[in-house]
């Protein structure tokens, strides 16, 4: 494929899948600028190899992996500057049947998600937002299936514990 063919092919892919990739990147980074940068960087880096990436069968997984790897490095580097955990005290025991409580709980979970380690967060987004199976997540993150299960389990345990801790803080004298 010549350069024009590659450009047209990549453009067509972005038209169909670019939005989903941006949403994935945003849920991973919780930052619109970082998400846009990560997606653009991943696509620009993929351009020279696009034909081969497509031939491998799953460009979306390749690009998500690029976004995760770039974000994981950046996230770890700037860890000390991030303070992503807001006060979610008192939300664990609410009744999620109440729409207001449900939204409050979702907001709390969103804030807590932002504090998860990058790869755990990626696994959570792939499972609970994109609905991917364990083998699909494993292929995307270059993990074993057992590692995917372990990462998701740890992430959910962290979220539960954090909610419960804050509930305890509120009910303590």
């Amino acid at each position: 494929m010549d350069g024009h063919g590659t450009a047209a092919d990549l453009e067509a892919w972005i038209d169909v899948h670019g939005g989903a990739l941006l949403r994935f990147a945003y849920l991973l980074t919780a930052d619109r600028d970082r998400a846009a940068d990560a997606v653009q960087d991943a696509l620009v880096a993929a351009y020279p190899r696009w034909e081969r990436i497509v031939a491998a069968g799953d460009p979306g997984a390749y690009l998500r992996r690029s976004v995760v790897n770039a974000h994981t490095s950046r996230w770890r580097r700037s860890l000390r500057r991030e303070q992503p955990v807001a006060d979610v005290a008192g939300l664990a025991g609410r009744h999620v049947d109440d729409p207001a409580d449900r939204i409050a709980t979702e907001d709390a979970l969103w804030l807590l998600c932002r504090a998860l380690p990058g790869r755990q967060r990626a696994a959570v987004v792939l499972r609970y937002y994109e609905g991917r199976s364990d083998p699909e997540i494993a292929a995307t993150l270059d993990y074993s299936v057992s590692t995917v299960r372990s990462q998701i389990h740890r992430a959910l345990a962290t979220l539960r514990t954090r909610l419960a801790d804050d509930e305890e803080e509120v009910s303590s004298p």
């Binding site: 972005i14 038209d15 670019g18 939005g19 941006l22 949403r23 990147a25 945003y26 849920l27 919780a30 619109r32 998400a35 846009a36 939204i103 709980t105 979702e106 907001d107 979970l109 969103w110 998600c113 959570v124 987004v125 609970y128 937002y129």
Partner: peptide
């Protein structure tokens, strides 16, 4: 939570 906040992502 993820579905709701995905709407805040940059446009394509």
């Amino acid at each position: 939570a993820l579905r709701r906040h995905a709407g805040e992502a940059p446009a394509a």
